[in-house]
């Protein structure tokens, strides 16, 4: 009984934080999604499914979901492939890998606002950036951020540039857990580099790989900062995602009820990913 009381006492701070800043706001968000609250007024009217009906009839909302899906696919492929390749190469570089890790982590530890300013001024700037320079040598090109078909990929490129190094470091840490005797045994048995990675290294990092996969899906549906900083969801909503659209509803159009409804969709996709991960982890444990 005494031990149990101490246990409850020990988990109390985490529980309180979870209730105060996750559970309560979460429940309030669900409730608000059925209202026309503007974020300030004490007058809150329940409008049933009104916000959801309006969202379902809104092309920009569907465009945002589609962009989130595209964003997820981009992040599940490019940085993952890049990080796997680099971490597999670095795992053998025992002396120099620390330096590489620091270099790769630099974009990740810089604030998104700093990274966005760097790209806006050094790459995309029409006067002083790479775009401006290319124009001076006769290549009259516009910024991909202003191109409807290329803007999402341009923003994703910046975010991937900031993210892949971090993923490499995580993968490298997982690869380093592989028992060296297994690696050596595989080599003695005549495995080539690919076979060593495929049959020895990768199985040992599989749980980390799966976890990061799920985290990428969750974060992709929460994408906001780089899009807001680089394009604000434009041009003409071509880079709009659920996060930026919810922000516009909440702080520009003062439609917090509708913003809450959009927020629920963001959480919904993340929840699906979490449930799948939990299920897979459970099966793994049983196995």
């Amino acid at each position: 009984m005494k031990k149990s009381a101490i246990n409850y006492f020990l988990i109390a701070p985490a529980l309180l934080i979870s209730i105060a800043i996750i559970l309560v706001p979460g429940i309030l968000t669900i409730i608000m999604s059925f209202t026309d609250w503007n974020g300030i007024s004490p007058n809150i009217n329940f409008i049933g499914l009104g916000n959801f009906q309006e969202l379902f009839a809104d092309d920009v909302f569907w465009k945002s979901i589609f962009n989130n899906v595209k964003w997820t696919i981009l992040f599940l492929t490019i940085p993952v492939a890049l990080a796997l390749l680099v971490s597999a190469l670095l795992v053998e570089k025992k002396k120099s890998r620390s330096l590489y890790q620091v270099i790769f982590l630099i974009p990740y530890v810089l604030a998104p606002a700093v990274n966005a300013m760097l790209w806006l001024n050094i790459i995309f700037n029409p006067m002083s950036g790479v775009i401006g320079y290319l124009r001076t040598i006769g290549l009259d090109i516009g910024s991909p951020l202003t191109n409807m078909s290329g803007a999402l990929y341009a923003v994703a490129a910046v975010d991937i540039w900031h993210y892949w190094g971090y993923l490499s470091v995580i993968y490298l840490a997982a690869l380093r857990q592989t028992p060296t005797d297994q690696v050596e045994a595989a080599r003695v048995d005549g495995c080539n580099a690919w076979q060593v990675f495929r049959y020895v290294y990768f199985p040992s990092m599989k749980s980390t790989f799966k976890l990061m996969y799920v985290m990428i899906i969750i974060f992709s549906f929460l994408a906001f900062d780089y899009i807001k900083l680089l394009t604000g969801g434009g041009p003409a909503h071509s880079t709009e995602v659920l996060g930026t659209y919810a922000y516009t509803f909440a702080f520009s159009a003062l439609q917090v009820g509708k913003a809450s409804a959009v927020g629920l969709f963001m959480s919904f996709f993340g929840m699906i990913a979490s449930v799948i991960y939990t299920k897979l982890s459970k099966n793994e444990e049983i196995a």
Partner: peptide
């Protein structure tokens, strides 16, 4: 008012030919 103002900010939809 705010939401109407937001529609006019979306004037670029017309410029880009999406609406």
């Amino acid at each position: 008012p705010s939401a109407t103002q937001q529609v006019f900010i979306d004037i670029e939809n017309v410029w880009y030919g999406t609406e």
